[in-house]
Simulated assay, not measured.
Amino acid sequence: MIYDTCKKNGWQIDILINNAGFGGQGDFTRERSMEQDLSMIAVNIETPTRILKLFLPDMVKRGSGKVLNVSSTAAVMPGPLQAVYYTTKAYVTSWSNSLWRELKGTGVTVTTLMPGAMDTGFAKTGGLTDTKAFAHTVKPDKVAEDGYNGMMKGD
């Protein structure tokens, strides 16, 4: 486990970036399998939740730390044919906003990055290359820089 390895080696985590996630397309009832959707929930929701459940107490105890949770603009709208993906991103955004408030005054900040469509392998992997959302993508390096700078400021 990552947390155990860090503790064993005496590695202090000052910055934690939750950026794992994947999407997928298809009608929830007719095209998406239970396994596909549960795998997405495990990666997009369960994994960042478990990681912060382990690492946040140490950050709070020492009074410092920064977290960047990567969500998506998909978090704030319905997502027909991507219902589970959009919902997982809504979780990340709502959860991050809640943690941001809970951590006020602790010296630990949580920042939520909500990019739109980017020029990465995400669209191809998720079968989304022909969708309107990916017709005009942005370069991920600028998005990453903006997210990092926001996190460092505690935004």
Rank of each mutant, 00 (worst) to 15 (best):
E35K: 12
M59R: 12
Q36L: 08
G24P: 09
E46M: 11
F55P: 10
M34I: 11
D37A: 04
Q36C: 02
M59Q: 05
G65D: 03
P48R: 10
S64P: 05
I41F: 12
G24E: 05
R62M: 04
I41M: 15
S64Q: 13
E31I: 05
G26N: 07
M59H: 06
M59A: 08
D58A: 14
K66P: 04
G21C: 03
G63S: 06
R50E: 08
S39A: 13
R32H: 00
M34N: 07
V43W: 01
N69E: 07
T29V: 12
N69G: 11
T29H: 13
E31N: 10
K53N: 13
S71W: 00
I45C: 14
M34T: 14
R62W: 03
K61Y: 06
L38D: 05
L54C: 14
A42D: 14
D37S: 08
S33D: 03
L52S: 06
L38G: 02
P48L: 11
V43S: 08
V70I: 06
M40C: 05
I51D: 04
P48T: 11
L54G: 07
S33M: 10
V67M: 08
G63L: 03
F55M: 14
V43E: 09
K66G: 04
I45H: 05
F22Y: 15
G24L: 10
V43I: 15
T49R: 11
Q36P: 02
I45N: 11
L68S: 04
I51P: 02
L56H: 06
R50W: 09
